[in-house]
Design a protein around this nucleic acid. Structure first.
Lengths: 345, 345
DNA sequence: CTGTTAGCGCTTTCAT
DNA sequence: ATGAAAGCGCTAACAG
């Protein structure tokens, strides 16, 4: 088996010669155009394909048909371990699976914002469209999206409310503002008047939305409650504890600590334990995202569950449909979130 | 700006015409062959490139130069959310970053073992080489590697001891067996005579190695201690607790529970707490991997720290070197692990 | 320094 | 049902 021409990888011509037909016939077999090929020829060609270990040269095909079977996923993140983020992982997994199921491939590139324009994936790689997860300041994020759109290819943006009428563009996000309101309402119902939110210094639109939702909730209740936001250098355990420690050194204990996500909330909670502060009696604690992470902490964390994997899937479906029909079905897909009351509130 | 020929994307010819030079000159500018281009021409060409929004057609170039600027990452995993695994995430992040830094792109595809041969990435996508993280039974894993090698492209395999002399092949793994021995020795030194290991039903070579290391440790100590292995349906919190509960229903409390990784260990530990079993007084608990996860549990979990991200980086470097020099530098790269004593032992 | 020619492997079109 | 010719966009090799 695999008696390919020495060294070289077998081409369509090799197969054609071996099967005693023209290249065109082989191509027809490969593309399943059976109207043009007799069953006998097909059998013969397929045998030679197998024997020679022939594989289609995708570059040549894509060049000719001017079509790509790959989607680019761009992750703009200042920290190098961009994919290490659990949320991002899940999104990518869902996206990859939907695309792979439709015989598309997913090409991932992460980079700091400044590097986007020079990135390999934008300059030198052919994709049928881009999906993007972008962190950073609002202004910079918008700029990144513009750069992507200038390539004249369909763009799906994750987790950000953005309207670009007329652009070949679509947003897939979850209702983070609603999630913030759920948390705000929950805490207000428990007579908390003093919120401390701990968020990573790195700006993510979803976290901005969550804070916005909490603000809305406070306002709706009459605006008596106070929301303080502090930043931690990163989402790591040590940095979060550090940020909380520094804040509490000069500020009174808040009624509740709200983590930008579950790991942050958990790290803050463990800091409280280590200083003999009781949860939820002295301080209530809430997180966001709640994949499995929050189940591993005791007491069980109150959180708002995201379905990041579903977000990725939705983006994949939207992109595939766009490539099929020539236009995005809708400018925005918003997935619901789900409040999960634990024992920390 | 971007006055590209209406509809069509600008080609090298468009740029050439606009700049009043030949296509070859444009190509030389693009490829930085400045020996062949005067500074003035270069300027002119670059201006037109910018103005027309020209981007190189990677398919055409790759076809011509018969070279790829993308590496494929194959993840064989039965569960659909293949990337959701924290270890895998880290590996992919490290790999992607090294590759991106060298102007390579990473194309990811996850799939169940049976689907490998039919996967898009193998059949229909051009990459310069493959990296693979493969789960499943040893026999099936070997088969998957063979399938990859049949494509006549360099293959880097993660986390598995495998020797394939003569093949264009290389292994990048950590010393999981050593990690197992460390855990075994640590527990034996504490007079534990009865180990219960909880591993996911899905087989991963790294976990097999860890169990092997524990076995070695026991044997070296005279073989008095007993190791029992139970499988949990998945690594999820609920499945692990279920598996532990079922086992303890008919078996005595072991001296120590060893989780195949930290989340498993933590889930098991929380089960013990819920049944008023004290850790470490009644049962000691140990995990593996210990990224940040183990820091979020109290008492702090004893674990063996992996550097999955470094594993990915190493694989990236090995692959890049292979593409440069034509051969892998070494057949195997083994990264060290690091024992981290917590409060659970 | 710049231009011309040819061809990478495939498929579209048209002829048989 | 099968084949021949042309060309997708690019660059290696050579000519000027």
């Amino acid at each position: 088996m695999n008696e390919r021409p020495r060294g070289r990888r077998a081409t369509i011509k090799d197969v054609a010669k071996a099967a005693g037909v023209s290249a065109m016939t082989v191509s027809n077999v490969l593309n399943g155009r059976m109207q043009f090929v007799s069953v006998a020829t097909k059998k013969r060609v397929e045998r030679e394909i197998e024997r020679l270990g022939y594989r289609r040269q995708a570059n040549a095909r894509n060049l000719r048909v001017a079509e790509q079977r790959s989607i680019g996923m761009v992750i703009v993140d200042e920290q190098p371990a961009f994919l290490a983020d659990f949320f991002t992982c899940q999104v990518v997994a869902g996206l990859a699976n939907v695309l792979n199921g439709a015989d598309f491939t997913l090409t991932v590139q992460g980079m700091p914002g400044a590097a986007l324009a020079q990135s390999m994936i934008m300059r030198n790689f052919e994709v049928g469209g881009f999906c993007a997860m972008i962190s950073g300041a609002a202004e910079a994020r918008r700029e990144s999206v513009q750069q992507l759109l200038e390539l004249d290819q369909p763009v799906v943006l994750f987790q950000e409310k953005m309207e670009l009428p007329g652009a070949d563009f679509c947003v897939v996000r979850q209702d983070d503002r609603g999630a913030g309101r759920l948390v705000g309402d929950h805490l207000l119902a428990r007579r908390v008047g003093d919120f401390l939110a701990v968020v990573p210094a790195q700006h993510w639109p979803a976290i901005e939305e969550r804070l916005g939702g909490i603000g809305e909730s406070i306002a709706a209740a009459g605006g008596e409650a106070r929301l303080t936001v502090i930043e931690s250098a990163s989402e790591s355990f040590a940095d979060v504890q550090d940020a909380v420690a520094r804040h509490l050194a000069h500020a009174p204990l808040p009624g509740a600590i709200i983590g930008g996500n579950d790991p942050i909330a958990t790290a803050a909670m463990l800091y409280l334990f280590d200083h003999d502060i009781r949860v939820p009696e002295d301080v209530r604690v809430v997180g966001f995202n709640g994949f499995e992470a929050h189940r591993y902490a005791r007491p069980r964390l109150t959180t708002v569950v995201s379905s990041a994997y579903a977000l990725g899937e939705q983006a994949g479906r939207a992109m595939l449909k766009r490539l099929e029909t020539g236009a995005f079905e809708r400018p925005e897909f918003v997935l619901p979130v789900h409040f999960d009351a634990g024992a920390t509130t």
